[in-house]
Amino acid sequence: MSETTHPSPGRSAGSQFLGSEQLVLALILAALCIAISIAAPQFYSEANIIAILRQCALVLIVASGMTMLIITAEVDLSVGASLAFVGCIGMAALNATHSLALGFLAALAFGGGVGLINGLVATKLKVNSLIGTIGMMMMLQGGVYLFTREAVQNHHHIAAFTDLGAGYVGPIPVPVIFAAVIFAVAYVTLRFTTLGRYIYAVGANEKAVRLSGMRSDRLKLFAFVVTGLCVGVAGMILASLMNAGQPTAGRGFELTVIAAVILGGTSLFGGRGSIVGTLLGVLLLKVIDNGIIILGWNQDLQMVVPGVVIIVASYLDIMRNRANAS
């Protein structure tokens, strides 16, 4: 992994960006795209590519935060439940204030607040984040119904809000721009900043980081809050797309996000991983989704095929590691 995230000088820019770790994944993705477009040429239409990117956007936004979090050796399973809640909160705030900025702020505050609580539970109470965030997921799933039993409808009719999900800048959908910016920030942070280096370090060995005079708890807390803020952004976009705050939205979303991150080669044990891998993971999952629809296959396969892909990709990664070791 180190060669991927921190390549030695002298390698070409292309291989620096991809790295050997992501090569397998990139090849699988390329092979898949070629296979689908042979079977169904409309796969390569501009409209379809844009549709795929749009579907990637929500997952990529949250997966960017989740990649950082998983690199610190923590995880957040509450992002799906939080996504739905954020949409309802954001929409309600918009209805109350008729201000996009205040609505957005409410969504970010809620998402970030959930992240903060998750982080405090993990770092202060020392509850394993796998368990702590399952608890949070249950609280949010129940809590959203205490907040609203039905969808929060759009009563404010702010045009800019509709554009969040459905708008375009040139040919590019607005959600894709959000995703690209968040991805870029995460990429630069993880790759070039001291903060990014500490994020890897705390996942690789938290005790060593603490002995070196850093506050490891705060690094983890930071990653939890960032993940929560990403959910805040994604929740607003989702509410815009559905033109309502849906308490039932986001079921299983956490699994898609985590699957994409793991598929991208980030280790659940922390200390290794890359955001470029996550991007490839998201693309792969969404191309599979899209291919199944375009080819007219049974849509239930949309769950089955990614399951198989995760196992195969993880196995290939183990093989590659073994080959490198010898």
């Binding site: 992994m1 180190s2 921190h6 280096r197 690789a204 070196s212």
Partner: peptide, 26 residues
């Protein structure tokens, strides 16, 4: 408590002094 096994030698060495190699956080 000491090694970050998955990370390269140079990052292990610079862990406690990373700030002195940084400008504006980079």
């Amino acid at each position: 408590e000491g090694l970050m096994g998955e990370l390269p030698v140079y990052q292990n060495a610079s862990l406690a002094s990373l700030g002195s190699f940084a400008r504006l956080g980079f």
